[in-house]
Design a protein around this nucleic acid. Structure first.
Lengths: 234, 234
DNA sequence: TCAAAAGTGTTGTCCTTACACCCATGT
DNA sequence: ACATGGGTGTAAGGACAACACTTTTGA
């Protein structure tokens, strides 16, 4: 069985677009590339797919390397394969986008890789086609979050409605009526109200909520509608 | 610049899921594999990515080989990279899904490749992970067509509302109220009514419509809503 | 007591659906 | 004339958006 022998082989890599939310802005985690070519430039975290690994396993591994996190939201974004995307050698890259709770990641690991969080409107110039990857990831986040409750992945276990409100406003860069927004969220039945309040953001304090995991997992693949007039989205 | 030298290389392929609509059923075009391994089994049309080619160029080339068609709707579906997906040698494959007007493809070429159209509910066992590819393509078609007017790509230049109606009913396997459906379509303003009627399907005949190309291209990336209660979709 | 943010209530509009009838024509 | 599928009309219900006020509490 060596019928493919005349074909050329390529390197296969994976790159991760890691989103986080600090309560103010949506950010992505970038590293300073530690090896040539373009050593020192800002870049997505990535790596080569190992012989016994699937793409998704590679992405998980790389994500864990940089953040220490396991079992986070991970979705294939797109396969990039232009012949000249890496000047050193033909390398195809499958980009994954991930949503993490920014408070859980291990800063120590980040430091090892010279990683930093960047607000989406302050992304530096990136190596290769990583700028395009980020742009596509951003689009996909907006697209998908308009119908699926994935943005919860960016928040801690316990969160408040006003926090969610800021998050959605940040992702879509629009203002949302807090009353309608709150009602819409509550009406999904995905949220379980807690007894405690969060008191840092306001004097009155806002009740914490948790996700109903069962309903949430079911809802991830169904269509909801979080954004008014999604017809204007893109 | 040989810093990647320790990494292993893989073969890179592209596979095409080709959708067509014959007025009755949604179908996909499959070929009988002409080489080992698994010579003779049914398979998607695919091929290796050439040294100077991007994935998309490879997909276009392969599509043209089999159908004779150029410039048709082509979208990246997913990158498949499990280490054992091809038993002969590690091969990653980027799947593309395409929508063509079934009447335009060149049957001659099909014959050369021993190709046949299969209704979606009668897909034979396929090689490797091609069955999974088809399943994912089908899901994606349903998902995307619920909000974007892509199904027009399956129809000829001139088409009737009843044809569209059958098409949507076929894709979603549901019954749609013809009156509401028609109104919804007309209200998109994407359609230009023609003077002639199609007379084959009925005695009265149905008016032909054409797409307003300008509006259509703009609408491809925006959210419409063709399916009632999309919340129940998946 | 005042400011600042949380939370609840209401109303009108438009979109969607469900359903019934007329139209054109080949046989 | 009639059967067959094409096309139009309408009314009820529900979802959504716009908008105003009360509540809580730290300073």
């Amino acid at each position: 069985m060596r019928h493919y022998s005349k074909q050329t082989r390529v390197l296969a890599a994976v790159d991760c677009i890691i989103f986080g939310f600090d309560g103010e802005d949506i950010k992505i985690l970038l590293i300073q590339r530690g090896f040539e070519p373009q050593k020192g430039s800002w870049s997505l975290m990535g790596g080569f797919v190992q012989p016994e690994e699937s793409f998704e396993e590679a992405a998980s591994r790389i994500l864990k390397q940089l953040t220490g996190l396991d079992g986070v939201y991970l979705e294939q974004l797109y396969a990039f394969g232009n012949p000249d995307r890496d000047p050193a050698e033909r390398t195809i890259s499958v980009a994954y986008f991930t949503l993490i709770d920014i408070h859980l990641y291990e800063k120590q690991l980040s430091d090892d890789y010279h990683a930093e969080w960047f607000s989406l409107n302050k992304i530096p110039k990136l190596v290769f086609d990583h700028g395009l990857m980020v742009e596509m990831a951003r689009e996909k986040l907006k697209y998908k979050a308009a119908f699926h409750p994935i943005l919860f992945e960016l928040l801690p276990d316990k969160f408040t409605i006003p926090q969610l409100h800021s998050l959605y406003e940040g992702v879509y860069n629009i203002e949302l009526d807090k009353r309608n927004f709150s009602r819409k969220l509550i009406s999904t039945n995905l949220l379980v109200k807690q007894k405690e309040k969060e008191k840092a953001r306001s004097k009155k304090g806002a009740f914490y909520y948790k996700l109903d995991k069962r309903k949430y997992n079911a809802a991830l693949n169904s269509f909801l509608n979080f954004i008014p007039n999604p017809g204007n989205l893109k």
